[in-house]
Amino acid sequence: MIINFKEIEAKHVDGFKGGEGDFITKLADDGKVKIMLNTLTAGSSIGTHTHIGNCEVMYILKGEITFVYDGKEETAHAGDVHYCPCDHTHRAENRTSEDAEFFAIVPETK
């Protein structure tokens, strides 16, 4: 199965999961796994949330994103992967003046 993100309409979400600013996503979802191409615009964030019943793998394509993972801060750059296992908590912040892009997969684990 090919997922062509060029054919998926981008959705803009203001304050995704309680964060701040513009989050842009192109989402493929079959009910078992979410596959996303995302942009976290400059100065924006994704709010703190816990992955219950799923996990998340985020591959940074462009820019940098600072994560607070289970209370610990870490910064990922293009080429890095951030992983949030089931039952763990994270948030994401783009503290830079440039948009950050990342590919994310959220499979259901239960």
Score class of each variant (00 low, 15 high):
Met1Leu: 14
Met1Cys: 06
Ile2Thr: 14
Ile2Tyr: 08
Ile3Pro: 01
Ile3Lys: 04
Asn4Leu: 02
Lys6Trp: 03
Lys6Ser: 14
Glu7Met: 07
Glu7Lys: 12
Glu7Trp: 02
Glu9Arg: 03
Glu9Leu: 11
Lys11Arg: 15
His12Val: 15
His12Ser: 14
Val13Leu: 13
Asp14Met: 15
Asp14Tyr: 07
Asp14Pro: 00
Phe16Leu: 11
Gly18Asp: 08
Gly19Ile: 10
Glu20Gln: 11
Glu20Ala: 12
Glu20Thr: 15
Gly21His: 05
Asp22Ser: 13
Phe23Ile: 08
Phe23Tyr: 14
Ile24Gln: 03
Leu27Arg: 13
Ala28Phe: 15
Asp29Trp: 12
Asp30Ile: 06
Asp30Thr: 01
Asp30Ser: 01
Gly31Ser: 06
Lys32Glu: 12
Val33Thr: 15
Ile35Arg: 14
Thr41Trp: 02
Ser44Asn: 02
Ser45Gln: 04
Ser45Pro: 12
Ile46Phe: 08
Thr48Ser: 10
Thr48Gly: 03
Thr48Met: 00
Thr48Trp: 00
His49Pro: 14
His49Gln: 09
His49Cys: 02
His49Trp: 00
Ile52Ser: 11
Gly53Leu: 06
Asn54His: 10
Cys55Gln: 15
Cys55Gly: 09
Glu56Tyr: 00
Glu56Ser: 05
Met58Lys: 09
Met58Asn: 14
Met58Leu: 10
Tyr59Val: 04
Tyr59Ile: 06
Tyr59His: 10
Tyr59Asn: 09
Leu61Ser: 02
Leu61Tyr: 04
Lys62Cys: 07
Lys62Leu: 10
Gly63Val: 01
Tyr69Met: 10
Tyr69Pro: 09
Tyr69Asn: 14
Asp70His: 01
Asp70Tyr: 03
Lys72Phe: 07
Lys72Val: 13
Lys72Arg: 12
Glu73Ser: 13
Glu74Val: 05
Thr75His: 08
Thr75Pro: 09
Thr75Asn: 02
His77Lys: 14
Ala78Gln: 08
Ala78Arg: 07
Ala78Ile: 03
Asp80Arg: 07
Asp80Cys: 08
His82Tyr: 08
His82Lys: 09
His82Thr: 01
Tyr83Leu: 01
Cys84Arg: 05
Cys84Ala: 11
Pro85Asp: 10
Pro85Gly: 09
Cys86Gln: 15
Cys86Lys: 15
Asp87Ile: 00
Asp87Ala: 05
His90Met: 11
His90Gln: 08
His90Ala: 11
Arg91Pro: 09
Arg91Leu: 14
Ala92Gly: 15
Ala92Thr: 11
Glu93Ala: 13
Asn94Val: 04
Arg95Ser: 02
Arg95Phe: 02
Ser97Tyr: 03
Ser97Arg: 08
Glu98Asn: 12
Ala100Gly: 06
Glu101Pro: 10
Glu101Gly: 01
Phe102Leu: 11
Phe102Ser: 05
Phe102His: 03
Val106Asp: 06
Val106Cys: 01
Pro107Cys: 00
Glu108Gly: 02
Glu108Ala: 04
Thr109Asp: 04
Thr109Ser: 11
Lys110Thr: 05
